[in-house]
C-alpha cells in the first residue's frame, strides 16, 4: 500500500444472496492512482465485489469506507439501454453529469458516433460510450466491469493504452474486473485473486507464481504462456498482436471479428 490515504477501504466484507455466500471476509483497499485488477473463476464474486466497493450494492456484513467526495466513473458489465428511449450518444454522456462530451468521445475513439442513437450501437461501441461517460465525470476512481468484452484484439490493446493514459493524465485509480489473464500480466499494478474471499494478491509477476493463483486457474505446471499458445494459436490468422503471448483466459468470445 502507498502511504497516502486509500480511496476505498473495505473490511470484513461479506455478501450473501438467496442463502448463498458470495463473498466472505474480504479486506480490500484501493490507493489513489493505482491500477488494480480483480481476477477469478466464474462465480467468484468479482462483479459483486466491484459493485460493493463503489456502493452500488449494500454488503450483508463488514463495512466499506469511501473517501469523502470521491467521484466514481463506472461501466457495468452490460449496459442494458432500453431501445424505446430515444437518446443520442452525446446526450447519454451528458446525463452522467460531466462536461465536454466531445473530448471524452475522441478519447474512446467514437467521436463519429456523437449524434448516433444509443439503441443503434454495437456491443463494442456501447462499451466505449459507457467508458466515455465514466471518463467525462473526471473520476477519482474508474470502476470497470469486464471492460474489454465486445472489443476486438486491436480495440483491446487500444483500451489498455487508454486506461494507462487516463491514469497518467488524471491520476485516477482504476479497478477492473476481468477473467482475461492478459490484463493482469500487462497493465495492472496489483492483482486481487478472488474466489469468494481474497486468495492472494500482489504485483502481477509475484501473483502469477503463487500456488493459490495457479490452483485457481488450473494452470498446473505449464503456466499461462503454455495455456495461451495451446488454446489460441488456431484462432488468429495473421493477426498482429500488440500484446504479449501471456493470454490465458478460457472464454474467448470477445475476439470474433
Amino acid at each position: 500500500m502507498t502511504a497516502s490515504e486509500p480511496l476505498i477501504r473495505a473490511e470484513g466484507l461479506g455478501v450473501s444472496a438467496g442463502g448463498r455466500r458470495i463473498l466472505y471476509d474480504v479486506d480490500v483497499a484501493l490507493a489513489p492512482g493505482e491500477i488494480v485488477t480483480i481476477v477469478g473463476p466464474n462465480g467468484a464474486g468479482k462483479t459483486t465485489l466491484l459493485r460493493t466497493l463503489i456502493g452500488a450494492l449494500t454488503p450483508s456484513r463488514g463495512r466499506v469506507a469511501r473517501k469523502p467526495g470521491l467521484t466514481i466513473g463506472y461501466t457495468p458489465q452490460r449496459l442494458a439501454i432500453e431501445s424505446t428511449m430515444p437518446l443520442t450518444v452525446t446526450r447519454f454522456l451528458e446525463l452522467g453529469g460531466g462536461e465536454d462530451a466531445r473530448s471524452a468521445l475522441e478519447m474512446t475513439g467514437i467521436a463519429h458516433l456523437a449524434e448516433a442513437q444509443m439503441s443503434g450501437l454495437s456491443g463494442g461501441e456501447l462499451q466505449r460510450a459507457a467508458l466515455a461517460r465514466a471518463l467525462m465525470r473526471r473520476p477519482g476512481l474508474l470502476a470497470l466491469d469486464e471492460p474489454t468484452q465486445g472489443l476486438d484484439q486491436s480495440g483491446e490493446a487500444a483500451f489498455y493504452r487508454l486506461i494507462d493514459r487516463v491514469r497518467d493524465e488524471t491520476g485516477a485509480a482504476v479497478c477492473m474486473v476481468s477473467h482475461d489473464l492478459h490484463v493482469v500480466m500487462s497493465g495492472s499494478d496489483r492483482v486481487i485473486c478472488l474466489n469468494g474471499h481474497v486468495c492472494c494478491e500482489g504485483a502481477p509477476v509475484q501473483v502469477s507464481s503463487m500456488p493459490e493463483y495457479r490452483a485457481l486457474f488450473g494452470l498446473g505446471t505449464q503456466g499461462a504462456l503454455a495455456l495461451y499458445r495451446h488454446e489460441h494459436d488456431h484462432s488468429h490468422h495473421g493477426h498482429d498482436h500488440e500484446h504479449g503471448h501471456d493470454h490465458g483466459h478460457d472464454d474467448h468470445r470477445g475476439d470474433a471479428a
Binding site: R51, I54, G55, A56, I72, Y74, P76, L79, A80, I81, E82, M85, L87, F92, L95, G96, G97, A130, R137, A143
Partner: peptide, 18 residues
C-alpha cells in the same frame, strides 16, 4: 428529470453515480 432518466436507463449505473 435527469435523475429519473438515469434511473430508467440503468439502475446499477445510476446507483454507482450516486
Amino acid at each position: 428529470w435527469r435523475q429519473l432518466l438515469n434511473s430508467t436507463l440503468d439502475e446499477e449505473l445510476a446507483r454507482a453515480e450516486g
